[in-house]
Design a protein around this nucleic acid. Structure first.
Length: 206
DNA sequence: AAACCTCCCAACCGCATCGTG
DNA sequence: GCACGATGCGGTTGGGAGGTT
Protein backbone atom coordinates (compact mmCIF):
# COMPACT_ATOMS: atom_id res chain seq x y z
CA UNK A 1 0.00 0.00 0.00
CA UNK A 2 1.35 3.37 -0.94
CA UNK A 3 0.81 6.69 0.77
CA UNK A 4 -2.15 7.59 -1.39
CA UNK A 5 -3.84 4.36 -0.71
CA UNK A 6 -3.18 4.53 3.00
CA UNK A 7 -4.58 7.98 3.02
CA UNK A 8 -7.72 6.93 1.25
CA UNK A 9 -8.26 3.73 3.10
CA UNK A 10 -7.87 5.54 6.35
CA UNK A 11 -10.75 7.74 5.25
CA UNK A 12 -12.88 4.78 4.28
CA UNK A 13 -11.48 1.50 5.52
CA UNK A 14 -14.31 -0.39 3.84
CA UNK A 15 -13.19 0.50 0.32
CA UNK A 16 -10.49 -1.67 -1.16
CA UNK A 17 -7.99 -0.24 -3.60
CA UNK A 18 -5.14 -1.51 -5.71
CA UNK A 19 -4.91 -4.55 -7.91
CA UNK A 20 -7.94 -6.77 -8.25
CA UNK A 21 -7.80 -10.33 -7.01
CA UNK A 22 -9.08 -13.25 -9.02
CA UNK A 23 -11.84 -13.68 -6.50
CA UNK A 24 -13.00 -10.12 -6.95
CA UNK A 25 -12.92 -10.54 -10.70
CA UNK A 26 -15.08 -13.63 -10.46
CA UNK A 27 -17.56 -11.94 -8.18
CA UNK A 28 -17.88 -9.01 -10.52
CA UNK A 29 -18.17 -11.13 -13.63
CA UNK A 30 -20.74 -13.41 -12.06
CA UNK A 31 -22.76 -10.54 -10.80
CA UNK A 32 -22.84 -8.79 -14.15
CA UNK A 33 -23.58 -12.06 -15.92
CA UNK A 34 -26.60 -12.55 -13.71
CA UNK A 35 -27.83 -9.01 -13.28
CA UNK A 36 -26.24 -7.02 -16.05
CA UNK A 37 -24.53 -3.70 -15.71
CA UNK A 38 -26.36 -1.14 -13.67
CA UNK A 39 -25.66 1.65 -11.27
CA UNK A 40 -22.09 0.90 -10.44
CA UNK A 41 -22.09 2.06 -6.84
CA UNK A 42 -25.04 -0.08 -5.92
CA UNK A 43 -23.72 -2.90 -8.07
CA UNK A 44 -20.51 -2.94 -6.07
CA UNK A 45 -22.45 -3.12 -2.83
CA UNK A 46 -24.94 -5.66 -4.07
CA UNK A 47 -22.19 -7.89 -5.37
CA UNK A 48 -20.49 -7.71 -2.01
CA UNK A 49 -17.36 -6.10 -3.37
CA UNK A 50 -15.47 -3.73 -1.13
CA UNK A 51 -14.80 -1.50 -4.10
CA UNK A 52 -16.33 1.73 -5.21
CA UNK A 53 -18.44 1.88 -8.34
CA UNK A 54 -15.80 3.63 -10.33
CA UNK A 55 -13.29 0.92 -9.69
CA UNK A 56 -15.75 -1.79 -10.67
CA UNK A 57 -16.70 0.00 -13.83
CA UNK A 58 -13.10 0.47 -14.83
CA UNK A 59 -12.22 -3.12 -14.11
CA UNK A 60 -15.14 -4.35 -16.13
CA UNK A 61 -14.63 -2.07 -19.10
CA UNK A 62 -10.88 -2.39 -19.35
CA UNK A 63 -10.33 -5.98 -18.39
CA UNK A 64 -13.25 -8.27 -17.69
CA UNK A 65 -15.61 -7.47 -20.52
CA UNK A 66 -15.83 -10.54 -22.76
CA UNK A 67 -15.23 -8.61 -25.96
CA UNK A 68 -12.17 -6.79 -24.75
CA UNK A 69 -8.98 -7.44 -26.68
CA UNK A 70 -5.62 -6.72 -25.14
CA UNK A 71 -2.12 -6.53 -26.53
CA UNK A 72 -0.90 -7.13 -30.08
CA UNK A 73 -2.05 -3.91 -31.61
CA UNK A 74 -1.90 -4.52 -35.33
CA UNK A 75 -0.30 -2.16 -37.84
CA UNK A 76 -3.77 -1.45 -39.18
CA UNK A 77 -4.91 -0.47 -35.74
CA UNK A 78 -1.83 1.65 -35.29
CA UNK A 79 -2.54 3.54 -38.44
CA UNK A 80 -6.14 3.99 -37.45
CA UNK A 81 -5.10 5.30 -34.08
CA UNK A 82 -2.75 7.71 -35.76
CA UNK A 83 -5.42 8.95 -38.09
CA UNK A 84 -8.05 9.31 -35.45
CA UNK A 85 -5.67 10.97 -33.02
CA UNK A 86 -4.76 13.42 -35.73
CA UNK A 87 -8.43 14.13 -36.21
CA UNK A 88 -9.55 14.31 -32.60
CA UNK A 89 -6.48 14.63 -30.44
CA UNK A 90 -6.59 12.93 -27.06
CA UNK A 91 -10.19 11.88 -27.32
CA UNK A 92 -9.31 8.34 -26.34
CA UNK A 93 -12.79 7.08 -25.76
CA UNK A 94 -13.88 8.41 -29.11
CA UNK A 95 -10.92 6.78 -30.79
CA UNK A 96 -11.56 3.54 -28.92
CA UNK A 97 -15.06 3.37 -30.32
CA UNK A 98 -13.55 2.90 -33.76
CA UNK A 99 -11.33 0.07 -32.61
CA UNK A 100 -13.59 -2.80 -31.62
CA UNK A 101 -12.44 -4.52 -28.47
CA UNK A 102 -9.89 -1.88 -27.62
CA UNK A 103 -10.32 0.31 -24.59
CA UNK A 104 -9.56 3.97 -24.28
CA UNK A 105 -7.12 3.11 -21.54
CA UNK A 106 -5.18 0.75 -23.74
CA UNK A 107 -5.05 3.18 -26.63
CA UNK A 108 -4.00 5.95 -24.31
CA UNK A 109 -1.27 3.81 -22.81
CA UNK A 110 -0.15 2.70 -26.21
CA UNK A 111 0.02 6.22 -27.51
CA UNK A 112 1.73 7.68 -24.50
CA UNK A 113 4.45 5.08 -24.29
CA UNK A 114 5.26 5.61 -27.95
CA UNK A 115 4.83 9.32 -27.99
CA UNK A 116 6.73 9.98 -24.81
CA UNK A 117 9.62 8.08 -26.23
CA UNK A 118 9.37 10.14 -29.33
CA UNK A 119 9.01 13.42 -27.50
CA UNK A 120 12.17 12.73 -25.58
CA UNK A 121 13.97 12.11 -28.81
CA UNK A 122 12.56 15.24 -30.32
CA UNK A 123 13.38 17.31 -27.24
CA UNK A 124 16.94 16.18 -27.35
CA UNK A 125 17.03 16.85 -31.00
CA UNK A 126 15.59 20.32 -30.69
CA UNK A 127 17.97 21.11 -27.89
CA UNK A 128 20.82 20.00 -30.03
CA UNK A 129 19.38 21.92 -32.87
CA UNK A 130 19.09 25.17 -30.95
CA UNK A 131 22.51 24.76 -29.45
CA UNK A 132 23.97 24.16 -32.82
CA UNK A 133 22.05 26.92 -34.48
CA UNK A 134 23.64 29.36 -32.08
CA UNK A 135 26.97 28.04 -33.11
CA UNK A 136 25.94 27.96 -36.72
CA UNK A 137 24.78 31.55 -36.66
CA UNK A 138 28.24 32.40 -35.61
CA UNK A 139 29.95 30.02 -37.94
CA UNK A 140 27.80 30.72 -40.96
CA UNK A 141 29.11 34.21 -41.23
CA UNK A 142 32.66 33.00 -41.14
CA UNK A 143 32.97 29.54 -42.55
CA UNK A 144 30.99 26.48 -43.42
CA UNK A 145 32.84 23.55 -42.03
CA UNK A 146 30.64 21.93 -39.41
CA UNK A 147 29.34 18.56 -40.48
CA UNK A 148 26.45 19.01 -38.09
CA UNK A 149 25.54 22.42 -39.32
CA UNK A 150 23.75 21.37 -42.43
CA UNK A 151 21.53 18.68 -41.02
CA UNK A 152 20.46 20.98 -38.27
CA UNK A 153 19.78 23.87 -40.57
CA UNK A 154 17.90 21.55 -42.84
CA UNK A 155 15.71 20.61 -39.96
CA UNK A 156 12.59 22.34 -40.95
CA UNK A 157 10.15 21.35 -38.29
CA UNK A 158 7.11 20.40 -40.27
CA UNK A 159 6.49 17.41 -38.11
CA UNK A 160 7.71 18.35 -34.68
CA UNK A 161 7.65 22.07 -34.38
CA UNK A 162 6.05 22.89 -31.11
CA UNK A 163 6.66 19.34 -29.94
CA UNK A 164 3.09 18.43 -29.10
CA UNK A 165 0.48 20.29 -31.07
CA UNK A 166 1.66 19.40 -34.53
CA UNK A 167 1.31 15.70 -33.81
CA UNK A 168 -2.36 16.04 -34.19
CA UNK A 169 -2.16 17.49 -37.64
CA UNK A 170 0.94 15.93 -39.07
CA UNK A 171 0.63 12.29 -38.29
CA UNK A 172 -1.92 11.39 -40.87
CA UNK A 173 0.41 12.57 -43.54
CA UNK A 174 3.14 10.25 -42.46
CA UNK A 175 4.09 8.23 -45.47
CA UNK A 176 7.15 7.16 -47.30
CA UNK A 177 7.05 10.24 -49.47
CA UNK A 178 7.22 12.55 -46.53
CA UNK A 179 10.09 10.63 -45.06
CA UNK A 180 11.92 10.58 -48.30
CA UNK A 181 11.62 14.32 -48.67
CA UNK A 182 13.62 14.54 -45.51
CA UNK A 183 16.08 11.94 -46.53
CA UNK A 184 16.92 12.98 -50.03
CA UNK A 185 19.75 14.85 -48.52
CA UNK A 186 22.37 12.25 -47.89
CA UNK A 187 24.00 14.40 -45.30
CA UNK A 188 20.85 14.50 -43.31
CA UNK A 189 21.64 11.58 -41.11
CA UNK A 190 20.36 13.00 -37.86
CA UNK A 191 17.12 14.21 -39.31
CA UNK A 192 16.48 10.97 -41.05
CA UNK A 193 17.22 8.78 -38.14
CA UNK A 194 14.64 10.41 -35.92
CA UNK A 195 11.96 10.66 -38.53
CA UNK A 196 12.71 7.24 -39.78
CA UNK A 197 12.82 5.58 -36.44
CA UNK A 198 9.42 6.95 -35.64
CA UNK A 199 7.98 5.81 -38.92
CA UNK A 200 9.55 2.44 -38.48
CA UNK A 201 8.16 2.16 -35.00
CA UNK A 202 4.77 2.82 -36.42
CA UNK A 203 5.11 0.23 -39.08
CA UNK A 204 6.80 -2.39 -37.00
CA UNK A 205 4.73 -2.01 -33.93
CA UNK A 206 7.69 -1.49 -31.61
C1' DA B 1 24.60 -12.48 -9.56
C1' DA B 2 22.86 -8.26 -8.56
C1' DA B 3 22.03 -3.55 -9.12
C1' DC B 4 20.07 -0.44 -12.13
C1' DC B 5 17.20 1.13 -15.95
C1' DT B 6 13.35 1.22 -19.09
C1' DC B 7 9.02 -0.09 -20.69
C1' DC B 8 4.40 -1.26 -20.19
C1' DC B 9 -0.03 -1.43 -18.20
C1' DA B 10 -3.51 -1.63 -14.49
C1' DA B 11 -5.53 1.35 -11.57
C1' DC B 12 -6.29 5.72 -9.34
C1' DC B 13 -7.48 10.68 -9.22
C1' DG B 14 -9.69 14.93 -10.36
C1' DC B 15 -12.62 17.28 -13.27
C1' DA B 16 -16.46 17.63 -16.59
C1' DT B 17 -20.77 16.24 -18.01
C1' DC B 18 -25.15 14.09 -17.58
C1' DG B 19 -29.44 12.75 -15.37
C1' DT B 20 -32.77 13.25 -11.92
C1' DG B 21 -35.57 15.15 -8.33
C1' DG C 1 -32.66 27.01 -12.34
C1' DC C 2 -30.28 24.40 -8.73
C1' DA C 3 -28.24 20.69 -6.05
C1' DC C 4 -26.50 16.33 -5.93
C1' DG C 5 -25.13 11.84 -7.20
C1' DA C 6 -23.60 8.86 -11.03
C1' DT C 7 -20.94 8.28 -14.93
C1' DG C 8 -17.41 9.27 -18.37
C1' DC C 9 -13.05 10.92 -19.63
C1' DG C 10 -8.22 12.17 -19.74
C1' DG C 11 -4.01 12.61 -17.07
C1' DT C 12 -0.97 10.49 -13.98
C1' DT C 13 1.26 7.10 -11.10
C1' DG C 14 3.10 2.77 -9.06
C1' DG C 15 4.91 -1.46 -9.62
C1' DG C 16 6.12 -5.65 -12.09
C1' DA C 17 8.72 -7.66 -15.95
C1' DG C 18 12.35 -7.79 -18.78
C1' DG C 19 16.66 -5.94 -20.43
C1' DT C 20 21.22 -3.96 -19.66
C1' DT C 21 25.44 -2.97 -17.33
Amino acid sequence: MDKKQQCKTSQDPEVRKGPWTMEEDLILMNYIANHGEGVWNSLAKAAGLKRNGKSCRLRWLNYLRPDVRRGNITPEEQLLIMELHAKWGNRWSKIAKHLPGRTDNEIKNYWRTRIQKHIKQAENFQQQSSNNSEINDHQASTSHVSTMAEPMEMYSPPCYQGMLEPFSTQFPTINPDQSSCCTNDNNNINYWSMEDSWSMQLLNGD
